[in-house]
């Protein structure tokens, strides 16, 4: 067994897991954070995307022990009891998701992008989402929502949600 201590959504958490455990399984099975989805387990779909030390990562491709001592943010770390994160709110307002399975991963990729580049072009948004497969939506409404969050961040009024 290997002991992992990490900062998870702002709290220091520790678990003891077999060394081959992925970060995704640590999150889902040890900590009960099932927002990050297991789509493929081999790095193809992006449904498991989380943010580690500011970078978006496929958590199915990272071992839990590699997260030792690091800062991990998952979809559960975004909303407060009283308020959705702006990305979550705009995804809801614009109908950006359908079945929603890709959603947590897409939103974490978008957050990592906006944290680094608060004013991305459409092409930069498409690049940032390229590792997140979505079967339902064609991505258009996700891109619109991310652009609207960026506009809000610049203090411009968002186009009112349809």
């Amino acid at each position: 067994m290997a002991t992992v201590t990490l900062t998870l959504n702002g709290d220091v958490r520790t678990a003891s897991v077999p060394p081959e455990t992925t970060l995704l399984r640590l999150l889902r099975e040890e900590f009960g954070l099932t927002g990050s989805k297991l789509g493929c387990d081999v790095g193809d779909c992006g449904a498991c995307t989380v943010i580690v030390d500011g970078k978006s990562v496929n958590s199915c491709l990272m071992l839990a022990v590699q997260a030792d001592g690091r800062d991990v943010v998952t979809i559960e770390g975004l909303a407060t009891m009283s308020r959705l994160h702006p990305l979550q709110q705009l995804f809801e307002d614009k109908g950006s998701l359908q079945c929603g399975f890709c959603g947590p991963g897409v939103i974490m990729s978008a957050k990592a992008l906006l944290d680094e580049n608060p004013d991305p072009s459409e092409q930069e948004i498409r690049d940032a989402l390229a590792g997140n497969l979505c079967r339902c939506t064609g991505y258009s409404k996700m891109i619109e929502a991310i652009q609207a969050v960026a506009r809000d961040g610049r203090g411009e009024p968002a186009k009112s949600a349809v």
Binding site: G95, Q98, C134, R135, C136, T137, G138, Y139, S140, K141
Partner: peptide, 10 residues
Amino acid sequence: EGQVEGGISM
């Protein structure tokens, strides 16, 4: 619109 955009991706 969401249905049309998604259908087109398929």
